[in-house]
Design a protein around this nucleic acid. Sequence first.
DNA 1: TCGTGTGGTTGCATTTTGCAACCGTGGCAT
DNA 2: ATGCCACGGTTGCAAAATGCAACCACACGA
Lengths: 155, 155
Amino acid sequence: MPHRPFEGQNCSIAGALALLGERWTLLVMREVLLGRRRFGDIQRHTGVAKNILSDRLDTLVEHGLLEHRGSEYVPTRKGVDVNPVLVALMQWGDRHVYGEGGAPRVLVHQACGHDADPSLRCSHCGEEIAARELKVRPGPGASPQQQRDPLLPAA
Amino acid sequence: MPHRPFEGQNCSIAGALALLGERWTLLVMREVLLGRRRFGDIQRHTGVAKNILSDRLDTLVEHGLLEHRGSEYVPTRKGVDVNPVLVALMQWGDRHVYGEGGAPRVLVHQACGHDADPSLRCSHCGEEIAARELKVRPGPGASPQQQRDPLLPAA
DNA sequence: TCGTGTGGTTGCATTTTGCAACCGTGGCAT
DNA sequence: ATGCCACGGTTGCAAAATGCAACCACACGA
């Protein structure tokens, strides 16, 4: 099992990265969520070595993001929920790696049937949230130290 | 310089991960975007080894996500734009690592002043997008092979 | 029954990471 | 001016993760 120095920070980002942040893991999730669920397909489309893929699939199953059914790995709810992470990475890559008009893939909102360029909206005021408009404050699960700490603006 | 086997997939997710997917990098970005911009602060709050931190900061500067000004590392636009990635990871962690009501941190939408639980909205119909409602199709920058490939549903 | 494809595992070389010790600069109290 | 400490790193070496190629077992069809 891999070394996970990220836990114990009482931080959801670190907690997520403890699992998803291992090399190849998010690319494996990309494949599975794209619908490619067989070992060989995932291996070919990502380029990951077979032993590593084997390891990653095992830990994803172990943590309940995937289920191993016959020769397929199918995502659970917990696995499907990593979709927004992939969307965020994709949007960053579209903008900053491939330029305008160079996007390798485009998202489609199945419910309305149109291309979607999803953006983050505030659950309170409903407005779009720009990256620099986000702050952060201690939540219900914050440690005493985090409560005290003057948490600073994000961005 | 690290080994980056992710490039050349013509995929924005892989392109983003080539840079952001290295161990510690997203945690470093978390710190910087939280407002902690000095070497020592970042080191203490993440727990990353000094040599690794040094390396990560260098490559982040090299790729234009950060600028090194005096003794501070300040995010550029490109750097601020990773915020949505952190938000997505945080939401996943809130939901699946720390349970309901256990969130270590809560987001605040600075513009309206209230807590925000940002959700993805469709740019076309304006509705909230559930993770399983996203499909994908080849974009303008898709390779011939990707054009041909029957791109499958996401989720 | 022989070959081929799929889904892995094993062993070993290479790369990345972690850790501790060290170094140079600047501030500041003596 | 001298000594001492903090800060921002760098260096060297050990440990862990990764990459690669060879191998194995099973299923299926010719």
